[in-house]
Amino acid sequence: MSRPTAAPRRHQARSNRLRGYFGHHLASLRQSLRRLWSDRLQSALTATVVAIAIAVPAALYLTVENVALLAPPLQQPARLSVYAKTAASETQLQQLQQQLQAHPQVQTVSYTSAAQGLAQLAQSASFAAALDGLPSNPLPALFELSLALESVDGDSTALAERLEHLRAELQALPVVAEVELDTLWLQRLHAMLRLARQLLAAAAALLLLGVVVVIGNSVKMAIEQRREEIVVIKWVGGTDAYVRRPFLYAGALYGVCGALLALLALLSMTAVVNVSASELATLYQSQFQLRGPQWMESLLLLLASAALGALSAYFAVSRQLHAITPE
């Protein structure tokens, strides 16, 4: 065989094989679709279970994200208000200021004396008349502290603890009447959101494992039904990849159908909740609307579900193939 004729022929053979290869992908997809359809009830059941396993963590995710949207962001650096006792003398107040400034966790101290506080109040017309009638100044002196406490890596749990600790420490000082930590509830909320996200990740992992098992089981049953066919395909020289392909498509299709059902459920849930939310929002003159699944998130969910489905099928087929024929 001379070179000039051998090369194009080999090339021709390869391009034929490639066309056959893609042809088989298309045929496998069509075959999988046909089989899912011919076994509608079982397919619908599998897709529904997959949908639930996806929808539950997705709904929790949306809930957490919506609460996070509602929660105002944390102020950085954290702030604290220290009110002195009204009976405190000028020297005691000066001592307290020095003490606060010297504290390692305090960055700046801004002082508002009782008189200054009263003057600020008096500027507001509605209070002016009322204040005139008072025998003495009822306002305490106020120290506003900005703290050298920052959340490390967004770890708001630790920050909340340290703030609480600092508050107790300052509260114990003799001249201090009250320490106010306006943002403590917010710190707590953010800490809880963080915890919720962690729990969510764990729950999602568990449910996704369930998806792998459910899809794997459906594929396993499909393989059992097609045992005869698989044996014949192997006898006539079909590779494992060839046998596997239609099942991988079936797994991916289960994933996609499940994800589509889950998205549909989530969209209708947010739509229903948003109707009552907008009624509530009109009452409170707010604009709040629940955030449903976004385009990008939905696309990602579909792709990830398809991949997860195919992966589950891959495991199931690989395990079954060895059981079917010796080789």
């Binding site: 066309r19 056959g20 005869e228 044996v231 014949v232 006898w235 020289g237 079909g238 590779t239």
Partner: peptide, 30 residues
């Protein structure tokens, strides 16, 4: 090429699809 006593034909496919199987697994053009 292998022939069996119980012929091992796939009953859910046509004669054409049965005979075509060895060609399909090796990626022959349609």
């Amino acid at each position: 090429g292998v022939v069996f006593q119980d012929h091992r034909l796939l009953t859910d496919r046509t004669v054409f699809d049965n005979v075509a199987l060895p060609l399909l697994v090796s990626g022959v053009r349609s």
